[in-house]
Computed example of a mutant assay.
Amino acid sequence: MSHPPMRRPPIFPITEAQLVSLFMQSFAFGVHALVFAVCMHRWFCRFQIAGLGTKSWPWMVVATSLFILGGVDVSLNLYDNIIAFVFFKRPGGADLQFETISNWINIVRSVLYFLVAMLSDAALIYRCWIVYAHWKPRWAVIVLPTLLWLGAIVCATVDVYYVSTLHKLATIPHEKTLRPYLFATYLMSLLLNFLVTGLIVYRMRALSKQTSSFIRQQRWNRLKTVSRIFMESALMYTLSVVISAVMEMISNDAFYGTTDVSVELAGIAFDLIIIRLWTENTREESRTITESFIMEPPPARPRLNSLGHYQLRFPPPPSRVSFAHSERGSVHTNISKVRRI
């Protein structure tokens, strides 16, 4: 009589994966809380400058929403581990608790994960919309990113539906029913991030080339700094999404740790962009104020004229570049628009 094949133990058991996931997300949430506090401090400092606070409140709404979603998700992660290891007394122990795929905690946390991803992607598309303020036609730039965003929402909705209705004993990376929709969501999110970040960087570099011939070196160097900020911050979150997709592909429960960290990295990357851009703006404004004092003409000095009388001679005022009637005034307007991001 042949015996059924024994089930091979997983390389990374679900209980270990959930504990490691809790540790990783707790650490990432601590970093998120610190970065969010710095971001809020920079925002309150901007309120002291007339007109800047009212322009930046939409970004703070997004940053606060990402922080709240990250806090709720790590709290549910902790609650899930407490239930599994402390209060779950049925046969099967913690493994049964974690492998119940339609558990309400799994459903809610799946919704939170996709909400964070869709919110951060929507904010990225809006940044692109602002950067291309004077591009004609402006709407054409965001058509494809918006379609990718809507497609990701549809796939994420289907994935959440199956998570809530399967009622199987399996983990998410081992359930093949979810795999096509997870892959589609990851793929469209990655394409959106690469495309929109590339469009923003392209616009920044185009502006730097247009302004380098008639604006001082520091000004157009700042546009290159803005491009680097976008690329570095976007790379951090995008890398976590790529690793999550790989973990899903090889059916490894390390998927839980990478996706949980991605929830926090989305907020961290968003906050870092705000902090670094506003810090660059503050430095630029301080430098401009300092130079305005340096460029003031020196006081008049008395000199003898041909008749032997003292005469006050004023040196000519320093020349300044005016954009009021310049043909390149639109480029200056674009730069000011970018500084509001």
Rank of each mutant, 00 (worst) to 15 (best):
S227I: 05
L148P: 00
D253G: 04
A17M: 01
A123I: 01
V72D: 01
K176F: 05
W43G: 05
A33H: 01
D80Q: 14
I83E: 13
S120I: 03
P10K: 11
L19I: 07
W57Q: 10
T157R: 03
S2A: 14
M118F: 10
P173C: 06
Y310R: 12
S286W: 10
S213F: 08
E280V: 10
Y79P: 07
T54D: 15
R8C: 04
D80R: 12
S251P: 02
I275M: 01
N103E: 08
R219C: 13
Q97Y: 11
S2E: 10
K224I: 12
L272S: 05
F67I: 04
S233P: 02
T258C: 11
S244M: 05
S306H: 09
F47E: 15
F29P: 00
G51E: 04
S233N: 09
Q48Y: 06
F12H: 09
T177L: 00
V72W: 00
F44S: 08
S164F: 00
L239K: 07
P137M: 09
P316C: 14
P299I: 06
V20A: 11
L115T: 07
H309R: 15
Q25D: 10
S75G: 15
A37E: 03
K209C: 11
E285S: 08
L304E: 07
V160L: 07
S326A: 08
K89W: 09
S56M: 03
A152N: 02
R301G: 12
R90N: 11
V74N: 02
L78H: 13
R328T: 09
E99H: 13
R303F: 11
V241I: 15
H325S: 12
W43A: 11
E16Y: 11
S240M: 15
D121P: 03
W59G: 10
P58Y: 01
E291I: 11
P145V: 03
L304S: 09
G329M: 00
L239Q: 06
